[in-house]
Nucleic acid binder design. Structure first.
Lengths: 229, 229
DNA sequence: CGCGGCTTTGATGTTCATCAAGTAAAGTGG
DNA sequence: CCACTTTACTTGATGAACATCAAAGCCGCG
């Protein structure tokens, strides 16, 4: 996995993450930047690994997972492009409390955490920018988990289908990037009941399923289930 | 609710929150500091209010709640002394996405958010300190919610009892600061089932209950229920 | 006193997990 | 490429976990 040539100036993240840095500073960043590609299924970070880098996704889709017992894991969050994947405890822990796995081909940009920490201490605007972004991601994770928690099975399934349709793919037809089991691990239900609910939605004409492809046919009904189910 | 005189130098938070500021800077902080006391049950912040202050609890106990419908609310977290209560989205939102209510008599210290933001931009070490602390709190909330989510009713009750006993009161006998309904709103179950489970624990000789007072009698058994229930 | 909120218990039905069994799909080695 | 293995998916039957409804006791407060 080779280092890429420095092309931060053209990176779509510049405006997001580096808006507070001067071009000279960005030059400096490039000397310790590392851009890597991961295939679907590959581990990007492993639970328990020492935190050495500050990572974010340039493109692709990843899941944050933690194992809660042998054979059992809990999915914390799905992070899409331009999200941070180093966040939970990155500045307060020494090791990652979760793993990050690519669920689609993903490009990750990593900065050495020590250098990021130095930048935070010396560049207040950069620090503020980091706080804002970390804050937004944590907020998202917390809110998403609360929204899931207050719903029952059909509502949870509706929620996640609409999440992929509206937030990730911005289309009513999309390829489910996750297995039924992964949905189950995310919403805290069993695989069988995830499948059953999807089948019911299909029988009721709310969605069409063919393998991993989902088409939302009756958006209104799905929204109502999300609201009241 | 009067402003207190400036006594930050002696505040137990100095080492926690202000360790990165010089005495002169702390002096400056004091000119826009506001310390207030709240009685049990009082609202400290209200969902939807504009975020003008950066608040933390000096002493007491509060709950972070959000209303999810008429008659229904969800408890996000219990914050004890020296916790931050302004966190979720404080640097990325304009209004509070949740309310904060005192569940015991509580003293809250508030700093004007605009001044805190300025300090973050001009004092990198302060910024870093804020990031660390926000990070730790978000991490706690996320982890707690995941731990609750993966358990069933008895495990969830055991979890919250042990949380109050070990983390908050550091004693096996304590006054439950929350109603049965509030426990229910936190763990995502009904009030009746919270009561039923507590009664079962009592019948099984795991705890003693008299009103709000809880005594943990069989710690081993409670720990096992927390682990496997 | 009496009202309203909190608590408690029981009865009942719904929701969900578990177990079982079978099918489809996807990877593996010859 | 095909037999083989494994993994993902699907459906049904059953029982456990939980919500809901109902009713009554308790307690603080006006």
């Amino acid at each position: 996995m080779p280092l890429s040539k420095c092309n931060c100036e053209g990176c779509e993240l510049k405006g997001l993450f580096f808006s507070e840095l001067t071009n000279d500073e960005i030059e400096a960043v490039c000397t310790w930047k590392d851009e890597r590609s991961y295939k679907k299924g590959e581990y990007i970070l492993r639970e328990g690994d020492p935190i050495k880098e500050f990572c974010y996704t340039k493109s692709g889709l990843v899941k944050l997972v933690r194992s809660v017992s042998d054979q059992e894991e809990q999915i914390i969050y799905f992070a899409s492009s331009l999200d941070f994947i180093s966040l939970l405890g990155i500045f307060s822990n020494d090791t990652y409390p979760y793993s990050v796995v690519a669920i689609e081909d993903t490009v990750v940009c990593s900065l050495r955490i020590s250098e990021v920490k130095t930048f935070i201490r010396t560049n207040g605007n950069f620090a503020f920018s980091v706080i804002q972004k970390l804050n937004r991601v944590s907020d998202n994770i917390i809110t998403t988990n609360l929204e899931i928690k207050r719903r029952r099975l059909p509502g949870r399934i509706a929620y996640i289908l609409l999440y992929f349709a509206n937030d990730i793919y911005k289309h009513t037809t999309f390829e489910l990037p996750v297995s039924r089991k992964e949905i189950a691990d995310f919403i805290g239900m069993t695989t069988e009941n995830v499948i059953r609910t999807l089948s019911e939605f299909r029988r009721d004409g709310i969605i069409k399923i063919s393998g991993k492809t989902i088409e939302i046919v009756d958006m209104d009904k799905l929204l109502k289930i999300k609201q009241f189910g």
